[in-house]
Write a protein that binds this DNA or RNA. Structure first.
Length: 158
DNA sequence: GCCAACGTTGGC
DNA sequence: GCCAACGTTGGC
């Protein structure tokens, strides 16, 4: 089972919003980045576990865990001219954008902050977090893979 | 709110 | 196919 980290702005859709959804499940629509799309479309499998990350907030960090419950299917919001992430170049017969469904698993016991993860990476340059994209300067990927070692280390910080 | 980093667009 | 301009992300 693979692991992932997915970013969301809590002002737009946070871990509490996911927990409050019917069946605690939400389609992860609006991804308009090819690298992120490719990971969702080609690699994410049902049962994969996900660190839910809050970005663009006072204390950015990992706040919860979710699970992939539906594998990639076309993101229909790209076809809707009234949708926020409408993309006129995405054709229903040849969809450009995909989404998965995420289900809430639990909150982490505390926020595992970006600052803390960066510090660990800096103090252990050969450790599991050394090549974790999240702690790299200028990283803007909204979806990234998490190795087993990274997953275990981060969960151990709770 | 600033701004660095980076992806995308479009002219040539 | 290059690359400047532009838009977005996201930490601080």
């Amino acid at each position: 089972m693979a692991h992932w980290l997915m970013k969301s702005e809590p002002d737009a859709f946070g871990i509490d919003d996911l927990a409050a959804r019917p069946d605690q499940t939400e389609p992860w629509d609006g991804v308009r980045n090819y690298q992120a799309r490719n990971m969702m479309r080609d690699e994410m499998k049902a049962g994969d576990t996900v660190f839910f990350y809050h970005s663009n907030t006072k204390e950015p960090g990992i706040v919860g865990i979710a699970e992939v419950v539906r594998e990639a299917y076309p993101d229909h919001t790209a076809f809707d001219p009234n949708a926020k992430y409408y993309d006129p170049k995405s054709d229903p017969d040849n969809p450009r954008w995909y989404m998965v469904d995420l289900k809430y698993v639990r909150h982490t016991k505390r926020t595992i902050s970006l600052a803390e993860l960066k510090e660990i990476a800096a103090n252990d340059p050969d450790g599991p977090l050394a090549d974790f994209p999240l702690v790299r300067r200028g990283n803007r990927l909204s979806i990234m893979p998490v190795t087993d070692a990274q997953w275990a280390l981060i969960l151990g910080l709770e």
